[in-house]
Amino acid sequence: MDDLKRRWGIETNFQLTIIFIVFAITGSTSAWLSKPVCFWLGITKGDLGYLFTPIRLLLIFPLYQVLLVAIGFVFGQFKFFWAFEKKMLKRMGFNFLFKE
């Protein structure tokens, strides 16, 4: 745990616990919200068959990104999650989104 705290620049176990809680809540919430979002967009398993799951996973991704920063903000960890988000998106090739 000390290595993870050092790599993420975290000083206390409490902050690390809060960050783990935010990751857990965000993952569960984005998976839970993907069902109504698919319904709202008219994406059904009956129409798409085996393509439904990959499409649903693609929908979860942007939902997860937004929720991660929002839930991190609610838990007082906006600075950490905003930096985490920028780093992850830059690694995925979305550098153009962040002009620094």
Rank of each mutant, 00 (worst) to 15 (best):
L57M: 07
L59I: 03
E85R: 09
P54S: 07
F52K: 02
W82E: 08
G49L: 02
I60E: 01
L68K: 00
W82H: 12
F75D: 04
F78D: 03
P54M: 14
Q77L: 12
F52W: 05
K79C: 08
F75T: 01
Y50L: 06
E85Y: 13
D47Y: 09
D47T: 08
F80W: 10
K79T: 15
F84N: 08
T53H: 11
F73W: 11
T53E: 15
L58F: 03
Y64I: 01
V74F: 13
F61G: 09
R56A: 02
L68N: 11
R56I: 04
E85G: 02
K79I: 14
F81D: 01
V74K: 01
D47N: 14
A70S: 12
A70Y: 10
L57T: 01
A83P: 05
L67Y: 02
V74W: 10
F80D: 06
A83M: 14
L63Q: 03
P62I: 02
G72D: 06
D47Q: 14
L68S: 07
L51W: 15
I71V: 09
K79W: 06
A83Q: 15
D47R: 13
T53Y: 09
E85P: 08
F81M: 13
G49S: 03
F80A: 06
L67T: 08
Y64A: 04
L59Q: 02
Y50M: 02
L48E: 02
F73P: 01
G49K: 00
P54E: 08
F80H: 15
Q65T: 12
T53V: 11
A83R: 15
I71D: 00
I71Y: 04
A70G: 07
F52D: 02
F73Q: 11
L68G: 03
V74S: 14
V69S: 07
